[in-house]
Structure formats: C-alpha cells, structure tokens
C-alpha cells in the first residue's frame, strides 16, 4: 500500500507515492538518486545521512518518507547555486575539512543549521552541534575551523 505525499526537495516540489516503511534516506538515494546523502549505519548513529527537514538537521534514515509529507527538505545537492559553492562548502574546501568525504554532506548541513540559528557560535557550540555526526578521518579539528571560517563569510 502506497501513500501519496508532497515534498519539496531542494526547492522542487515532488508528488510521490511511497510505501509506508520507506525511509526518507531510501527515497532520496534510491528513488530520486540523490546519492550525496550517505548511508553509514541506518540507525541514526553516524549522521552521514543528515538532511535539513524544514531547516532542522535530521538523520534521514530515521525519518519515514511519509513523515516528510508537506515538508521542505534540503540535501547537499541543493546547497550550491550553479557552480558557486555555498560559503560553508567553500570553507570546507579551503580549510582541508574534507578527507574521505563520506561525513562531509552531513557535516555541512548541520553546520548550516547551526549558523542560521547562531551566526557566531563559539568553539564549544560548534563541537556540540557537530556531535551527532561522526567523522573517522579528520579528528574534527579542521571541520571546526571550517565552520569558524564560514561564520565569518556568511551574511
């Protein structure tokens, strides 16, 4: 049995019929082929699948697609405007906050949510905001620095 939902993804409205048990992560990756949202655990533990749901970061593996009905979803693919990177993306590139890149989309999206709410976070606030997103490569040092750099750049 499928449910009809309307969801806006990266600014585009989609009318979709989804099974009740389909997760938002599966909807994005498998149905819409938005594979920038990564799958690391499917249990809400790693943050690799983070997207913004009406502006709030959520692990898309724990959200059912039907729960996104009527919502606005931002994935990593929706952040840059054309070839122009978002300041957070640019900061991740410039500071070397990217290694394997698997955590990167989630890290960037939680950073965006943080900076929208708190444009001038201190280091502890940044670390707190990132703490639901695991990174095995960086030790977080350069990610924290990227968020600090982005905070300076963002309007």
């Amino acid at each position: 049995m499928k449910h009809d939902i309307q969801v806006t993804i990266n600014g585009t409205s989609h009318q979709l019929a989804v099974p009740a048990n389909r997760t938002l992560l599966e909807l994005l990756r498998d149905d819409l082929r938005l594979t920038g949202t990564n799958k690391g655990c499917e249990a809400g533990d790693c943050g690799a699948c983070t997207v913004l749901l009406d502006g709030d970061p959520v692990p898309s593996c724990l959200v059912l697609a039907v729960q996104a009905d009527g919502c606005d979803v931002l994935t990593i693919e929706g952040l840059a405007s054309g070839n122009r990177l978002h300041p957070i993306q640019q900061a991740f590139v410039d500071t070397g906050a990217v290694q394997c890149g698997y955590c990167t989309p989630g890290m960037i999206l939680v950073s965006l949510a943080l900076l929208r709410k708190n444009p001038h976070p201190d280091e502890a606030e940044i670390r707190g905001a990132l703490s639901g997103n695991l990174c095995r490569c960086t030790g977080y040092q350069k990610i924290v620095q990227a968020v600090q750099a982005a905070a300076k750049e963002m309007p």
């Binding site: 799958k39 994935t75 991740f92 990217v98 990167t104």
Partner: peptide, 23 residues
C-alpha cells in the same frame, strides 16, 4: 603548499560517487 584537494569540490557538493551510489 596548502592547495585544495582535487576531490574536495565533488565531495562538498555531494557528487563524489562511492560504490553503493552506483546502479
């Protein structure tokens, strides 16, 4: 130098392809 990684942009825009992304 501290030049940016060649794969950094693909990774920050979500276009880097990992094996499970392939269909």
């Amino acid at each position: 130098s501290r030049v940016a990684r060649v794969d950094a942009v693909e990774k920050v825009v979500g276009k880097a392809v990992y094996t499970d992304d392939m269909v």
